[in-house]
């Protein structure tokens, strides 16, 4: 309410009054501020201990060569970064990471929006259908991976059986052990697991589009397809941008799903950056190098994160 009108600066307050205007806060106001700080103190303490300190030391670690089992390190400066950037592994991992992110994100968005449009209609047992769709999102990645590994099983898996009996293939497919099958499988399972997020977010937005808009479009002679492109899609644009940014960030840093499904294999063809960090630190015992990978990865993600945060801040105010 107060933001509407600016102060007309007709008369300057005299100096004495100006000095008074700069007066300190009232006692009560100070008490409130102190209470506010007290209430946020646990958060700040935890943040410093388990987030800020580790974040800084991750950067610090990346400047050392550390052998994980003994945790003994020697200062190497920026050597880790230099090695990393000339090593092929970083670039192939980055490539795998981008293929995975773009692939799974695209499918999530397409399936998610499509499914949301379907669920927005008045279908039978809608809430049951919604629960079923939502479920993959909430189950543990471990469960999802076990189930899919069983579905993908080359000898007894139902997927191979169905495809053979449908005449699509003659021999069982190795879904996870060869390329490009492994990447495609990972992308598909990722899409299956995470598209419900898009469904729910889009569905919530769809339900908030006022009916008058559709009525007006109908009066103006728009058919169902025109109504989708002229009414629905523009209304969804905002929420889609937010979803895409969020999901891009989360998919980019996905570890569990890929690690558990393929472990980065065959060889390193589905090895994304988070997997390299893990491998360097705990399989190759190169803690310093792992930290360097993690820092580089964070820098790449920072672009998206800043974009998203700016947007959120703008909405906040």
């Amino acid at each position: 309410m107060l933001a509407a009108v600016g102060p007309p600066a007709a008369r300057r307050p005299d100096p004495q009054r100006y000095a008074m205007a700069k007066q300190q806060q009232t006692v009560l106001e100070r008490q409130y501020s102190r209470l506010g700080l007290l209430l946020i103190a646990p958060t700040v303490l935890v943040f410093c201990a388990v987030i800020a300190y580790p974040l800084v030391s991750a950067i610090y670690l990346s400047l050392f060569k550390i052998f994980t089992p003994t945790l003994e390190g020697t200062w190497v400066g920026l050597d880790n970064y230099r090695t990393l950037l000339v090593k092929g592994e970083f670039w192939t991992s980055l490539r795998a990471n981008l293929i995975w992110t773009v692939g799974t994100l695209t499918l999530q968005i397409i399936f998610g929006v499509g499914m949301a449009l379907v669920l927005h209609q008045n279908i039978w047992f809608r809430s049951l259908a919604r629960s079923l769709i939502l479920f993959p999102y909430f189950i543990s990645t471990v469960v999802a991976v076990l189930v899919w590994k069983w579905l993908f099983n080359d000898l007894y898996g139902i997927l191979n059986h169905l495809m053979i009996s449908a005449g699509l293939i003659d021999w069982p497919i190795d879904y996870l052990g060869t390329m490009p099958n492994a990447m495609i499988s990972v992308i598909l399972v990722g899409a299956w697991k995470y598209f419900p997020f898009v469904v729910i977010a889009v569905l919530a937005r769809l339900q908030s589009i006022p009916d008058q808009l559709y009525e007006a479009a109908r009066i103006d002679g728009a058919g169902p397809i025109a109504r989708f492109f002229d009414v629905t899609l523009p209304q969804l644009r905002e929420v889609l941008v937010v979803i895409i940014m969020l999901r891009a960030i989360w998919d980019f840093k996905e570890f569990d799903l890929i690690f558990l499904l393929t472990g980065g294999g065959p060889v390193t063809s589905t090895q994304t950056l988070p997997l390299v960090v893990y491998k360097e630190a705990f399989a190759l015992n190169q803690m310093g190098m792992a930290a360097a990978y993690a820092v580089i990865m964070m820098l790449i993600m920072l672009v998206f994160m800043i974009l998203y945060m700016r947007r959120t801040q703008r909405e906040d105010t």
């Binding site: 009054r17 008074m20 205007a21 700069k22 007066q23 009232t26 009560l28 106001e29």
Partner: peptide, 9 residues
């Protein structure tokens, strides 16, 4: 009411 605090006065 005491819900806002005067900057001065």
């Amino acid at each position: 009411a005491g819900l806002e605090f005067p900057t001065s006065g």
